[in-house]
Design a protein around this nucleic acid. Structure first.
Lengths: 192, 192
DNA sequence: AGTTTATGTTAACCTAGATTAAGAGATTTT
DNA sequence: AAAATCTCTTAATCTAGGTTAACATAAACT
């Protein structure tokens, strides 16, 4: 299956595309191979792309004043990843986006997506509906962060993203949950 | 100014509407007066509306197993408020949405917004762009929650929503920040 | 106006989770 | 394959923030 078809299969879950629209999308995408540990975004640079993960794994994270890493998002196959705040506001990023595995992505530039959304109703609908969904899920995470214990959040994470638990190093999962790796170790011990 | 015009002014910041589109939107909105302390959404019932606050204040909150309240969102004039997860997935709500003042809202039913977004490209664009923006800001809150101290989050809140600090009871702000009201009291004392 | 009920403050004590440090396994690099 | 560099675990100690309780204020109801 071509890389574009992987994206189209995803889009097809929400809207149907004409051949003209497909051609328009193919035209703005560029395929890119990313090596493990490579950064595709860094603080200081404006995030110029929606990055669709064809195959691989990424995380976005943030370096606190004390030099500690905080993982904001973990993305595997068929997720979009970027410093979304930077992308949307077109202001310099505060997040790193780093490949956790050798990966293959499609990059869709902001400057081309926006006109294309204005031009094609179905593309606008696709991003409207998927962003609404992403936002709804992110609300749930906010809710967990303010109301649940670290152990409860870990169990929730396992239930929600079982594939990631296998694939992603624990210290990154800990930093996604907002706890120290040592404490995650303790939690896992308590669970068995 | 009519209540619909207040909404149209907001929409105009992102897209322009034809008269036909305006009429279509007016047709699906119903105006509603809500008394202080009244609930417009409750756990167990599917959230059927995007509620646009013309005038007033609301919060959405969640009751933990231990019976504690956790405020997810605070909304004043010109914000939308609902149990967004319930609205998007059309599954029963887990949140309450409660008026903090006597308020006036426009209710836009899910079953009518969705077809209208399919029909009118500009309305689809409006919700795409505003939801993308809301999502970007919500990412920032997630980030604060996992990386900042309670005092830092309080200062950030003050900077971001200075009007709310005046208008909203402190115990609700505390529950929005994910801390106890007593601890917020302590923080405020330390700051002066 | 006076009584109830909700909100905010202060202080003493208590826990979830952080930090530090040291050792054991894994992975990478040479 | 050894050396170097990460990742994970365990245990001791420490701290941000929670809990409880008592009192002070301010709203809301009669």
């Amino acid at each position: 299956m071509s890389t574009h078809n992987k994206l189209f299969n995803n889009i097809r879950r929400y809207v149907s595309l004409s051949d003209e629209e497909k051609a328009g999308i193919i035209e703005i995408c560029t395929e890119s191979r990313i090596k493990k540990r490579q950064f595709i975004e860094q603080p200081g640079y404006v995030s110029g792309y929606r990055n669709y993960v064809i195959k691989g794994a990424f995380r976005s994270f943030f370096l606190s004043n004390e030099g500690k890493e905080h993982t904001v998002q973990i993305a595997i196959d068929d997720w979009f990843v970027s410093d979304f705040y930077s992308y949307i506001t077109q202001t310099p990023a505060t997040l790193f986006v780093e490949a956790l595995e050798d990966s293959l992505i499609l990059r869709m530039p902001y400057g081309k997506i926006e006109p294309l959304c204005k031009q094609y109703h179905s593309l606008s609908e696709y991003f409207r509906v998927t962003t609404e969904k992403a936002f709804a899920y992110s609300r749930n995470r906010t809710l967990s962060n303010i109301s649940k214990s670290a152990e409860e959040r870990y169990l929730e994470f396992l239930g929600m993203y079982p594939d990631m638990a296998q694939r992603i190093p624990q210290k990154i999962i800990a930093s996604y949950l907002g706890i120290s790796p040592e404490f995650l170790s303790k939690i896992k011990k308590n669970l068995t």
